[in-house]
Amino acid sequence: MTSLSILDLSPVPSGGTTGDALRNTLDLARRAEEFGYRRYWLAEHHFAPGVAGAAPAVLIALVAAATSTIRVGSGAVQLGHQTALAVVEQFGLIDALYPGRLDLGLGRSGRRGSEFAELAKRPPQPPGPARVVDGLLIPEPFSFAALAASPLLALYGSLLQQPGAESPDFADQVDDILALLAGTYRSAEGVAAHAVPGEGADVELWVLGSSGGQSAQVAGERGLPFAANYHVSPSTVLEAAEAYREAFKPSETLAEPHLIVSADVVVAEDDDTARELASPYGLWVRSIRTGAGAIPFPTPEEAAAHEWSEEDHALVADRVATQFAGSPRTVAERLRVLRDVTGADELLVTTITHDHADRVRSYELLAKEWAGG
Rank of each mutant, 00 (worst) to 15 (best):
L4M: 08
L4Q: 02
V12G: 01
G15K: 15
L22D: 03
R23A: 10
A29Q: 09
R30L: 10
R30T: 07
E33M: 06
R38A: 10
A43H: 07
P56L: 14
L59C: 09
I60E: 02
A61L: 14
V63N: 08
A64Q: 03
S74A: 11
H81D: 08
T83L: 12
F91R: 03
D95M: 09
Y98F: 15
Y98M: 10
G100S: 08
L106Y: 12
G113P: 04
F116S: 09
A117Y: 10
Q125N: 13
P129Y: 03
P129G: 04
P129A: 03
G135F: 15
G135N: 13
L137D: 01
P139I: 00
F142Q: 00
F142W: 06
A146M: 06
L147R: 07
P151N: 04
P151V: 05
P151T: 05
L155H: 14
Y156Q: 11
Y156R: 13
S158A: 15
P163C: 04
A165E: 13
S167A: 13
D172G: 12
Q173R: 14
V174Y: 09
A182S: 11
T184M: 05
S187V: 10
V203K: 08
W206S: 02
V207R: 02
V207I: 15
L208T: 02
S211P: 01
G212C: 07
A216F: 06
A216Y: 05
Q217H: 13
P225C: 12
H231S: 05
H231K: 07
H231Y: 07
S233W: 04
T236H: 14
V237S: 01
K249P: 09
P250L: 00
D270W: 13
R275Y: 08
R275A: 05
E276A: 03
A278V: 02
S279D: 01
Y281I: 00
R286P: 11
R286A: 02
P298S: 00
E301C: 09
A303M: 03
A304C: 06
E307T: 13
W308T: 10
S309P: 13
S309K: 05
V316L: 01
D318H: 04
V320M: 05
T322K: 02
Q323I: 00
F324N: 02
P328W: 04
T330V: 05
V331I: 06
A332K: 02
L335H: 04
D340C: 02
V341N: 01
E346F: 04
L347C: 01
H354D: 01
A357K: 08
R361Y: 11
S362C: 09
L365E: 00
K368G: 04
K368P: 00
E369C: 08
G372Y: 12
